[in-house]
């Protein structure tokens, strides 16, 4: 996979590039600010972008805005956004772009769990959605009517879907069979009024319902 990395802290940027290359990805460009990121994506046409939120020149949310801009131009570009803190507001903004397919939003802490981090990037590049468990936890505490119809178990399953897990991985986490997970998921889709014809996409739609 060809990746562009945007991160202003040099130490972290180099480390991230080394890590991805170790897992067989090629880092085609490393940049330190948002305008350079947009330029690098235009030049290299990468498969995925990994970007920090807070970058020069303003040290506010330039990275996030650049990610949204890139997605607006090319809804199929996979973007994994990393940040020192995660907020549901930013998660919602990211997932609104291109229906949330090929979007990831993780705490920088997760880089340390190297294997899981690289898997998350793979899932995003494959069109999946990955939302940090921290955001999921925030959302679970919110009182939201369509979600109130879900049982606690179904809410749990939906949370794991939002983290980008597969049915097998969810089954393992909850110590149940995959068939049981599939049944929970079918119930979730039904309760959230997600139409069956949008099948492959329903997991993403469920996560979006969760975030709005």
């Amino acid at each position: 996979m060809r990746v562009v990395i945007a991160e202003d802290a040099v130490l972290l940027r180099e480390g991230l590039a080394g890590l991805l290359e170790r897992f067989g990805h090629s880092v085609v460009a490393q940049v330190g600010d948002a305008p350079a990121l947009v330029a690098a994506v235009g030049e290299h046409r990468p498969d995925a972008v990994v970007t920090d939120v807070r970058m020069p020149p303003g040290f506010a949310d330039e990275g996030l805005r650049a990610a949204l801009e890139l997605r607006a131009r090319d809804p199929h570009l996979a973007v994994l956004v990393l940040s020192q803190y995660v907020e549901q507001t930013y998660a919602a903004e990211l997932l609104e772009s291109g229906d949330g397919a090929g979007i990831g939003y993780l705490l920088k802490d997760r880089i340390g769990d190297v294997r899981e981090f690289v898997e998350a990037l793979d899932r995003v590049a494959g069109g999946g959605t990955v939302v940090d468990p921290e955001v999921v936890r925030q959302l679970l505490r919110r009182r939201r009517d369509p979600l109130a119809r879900l049982t606690p178990r179904e809410q749990q399953v939906l949370g794991l879907i939002a983290e980008g897990r597969t049915n097998a991985s969810i089954a393992k986490e909850l110590f149940v069979t995959e068939a049981a997970v599939a049944k929970h998921i079918a119930n979730i889709f039904a309760k959230l009024d997600l139409p069956p014809e949008s099948d492959g996409h329903r997991r993403v739609l469920a996560v979006l319902a969760y975030l709005r």
């Binding site: 802290a9 130490l11 480390g15 340390g112 769990d113 190297v114 981090f117």
Partner: peptide, 18 residues
């Protein structure tokens, strides 16, 4: 804190993970 301690801890965590 964001530019200093936090970045260093993330780097440390990544190095330990590797």
């Amino acid at each position: 804190l964001h530019d200093g301690a936090q970045q260093r801890l993330v780097s440390l965590s990544m190095t330990l993970g590797l």
